[in-house]
């Protein structure tokens, strides 16, 4: 198990190098120049050139990449052009807010998605099943920022139940913290809830036809226990996999939703960094998001044996 974990972790390194490479060149291929953005339209070409030299942007791309990777390997993600402080520091500062939002959105997704999928499968072709499927289709189709705006319109502007946006750290009171979280978490979690519900339903429908389910019924077990014990543990792995992916995506930044709710998370930082062409910050953020995603998925893989005794990592 330990050896397996270590080898899997080593396997993450090429993935992350690839992420670094792609994000680096993609950013530099997009038109726009941070020096020009900083100095504004009035700046003379000399001043721009000087600033570019200061930032090291006059070097060939390969040299810039090499420099960035070698310092990144030492834990230094460089300094942000615009914030004037280390990238790592800026990212770490934003992480708690994003983490809160991701966890809240995941809770929404799991609490709605899993039971909805289970009940829909247990009552296949019923009105409930039909409704869940239609709502799930909506959930997947509706863009989360639009849902966010709609929720703001109804619950903030209309009913005044929740603030229109912003963030209160958990240290300044749990209730306030949650109040600011509800709407962004719902708009983010809804789509994931839809995905989880569809996945849960599909796995459940497959499992519920298995012989061992008939065996459980033939023991005299109630339908409730048949579904929640015998079937549920058998679909746990598929559900866990989508939940893990959902969590990775949610942690990776709810870029647009954070902007809609003026929520100070990593996603909003990335949007700002992109508009200002803040190369070190974009690269650092993308690397962090990718790392979180692959680590979450690794953890999910390592959890499999807990749910299925047939899976063993030697």
């Amino acid at each position: 198990m330990l050896r397996y974990t270590l080898s899997r972790m080593l396997g993450l390194i090429p993935t992350l190098i690839l992420v670094a490479l792609i994000s680096f060149f993609l950013i530099h291929l997009t038109p726009g120049d941070p020096a020009a953005v900083m100095l504004g339209v009035e700046a003379t070409p000399e001043r721009v050139a000087n600033l570019r030299a200061d930032m090291g942007l006059d070097q060939p791309l390969t040299v810039q990449f090499k420099d960035w990777v070698s310092s990144a390997l030492q834990g230094d993600l460089g300094n942000s052009f615009f914030l004037g402080r280390p990238v790592a520091e800026a990212l770490v500062e934003r992480l708690p807010a994003t983490f809160s939002l991701a966890v809240a959105a995941l809770l929404v997704a799991v609490i709605i998605g899993v039971p909805a999928g289970i009940i829909a499968a247990a009552r296949q072709n019923s009105v409930f099943d039909g409704s869940v499927m239609v709502i799930a289709l909506l959930g997947i189709s509706v863009p989360s920022f639009w849902l966010g705006l709609l929720l703001i319109l109804i619950f903030s502007v209309g009913l005044g139940w929740f603030p229109t946006g912003g963030y209160v750290p958990i240290s300044e009171g749990f209730v306030q913290h949650v109040k600011y979280l509800v709407l962004p978490a719902v708009s983010l979690g809804f789509m994931q809830a839809a995905l989880i519900a569809r996945m849960t339903r599909a796995s459940m429908l497959e499992v519920i036809r298995k012989d061992y389910i008939t065996t459980a019924r033939s023991k005299g077990q109630s339908e409730f226990v048949v579904v929640t014990k015998h079937a549920l543990k058998n679909i746990a792995i598929s559900v866990l996999t989508v939940v893990g992916m959902a969590f990775g995506i949610l942690l990776g930044g709810a870029v647009i939703v954070e902007t809609v709710f003026a929520y100070p998370g990593v996603g909003r930082l990335v949007v700002q960094a992109v508009t200002r062409r803040d190369y070190p910050l974009i690269q650092g953020a993308l690397l962090m998001i990718a790392s979180i995603y692959v680590i979450v998925n690794l953890v999910v893989d390592l959890l499999y044996p807990l749910f299925d005794p047939r899976i063993k990592y030697e």
């Binding site: 012989d211 033939s218 005299g220 543990k233 058998n234 299925d308 005794p309």
Partner: peptide, 25 residues
Amino acid sequence: EMRKLRGNDISMIFQEPMTSLNPVF
């Protein structure tokens, strides 16, 4: 009422022992 009989007065075994036992218990 049937649940009280099933497994108690009337039991059943199936064709495929590979699939008739729950793999995760």
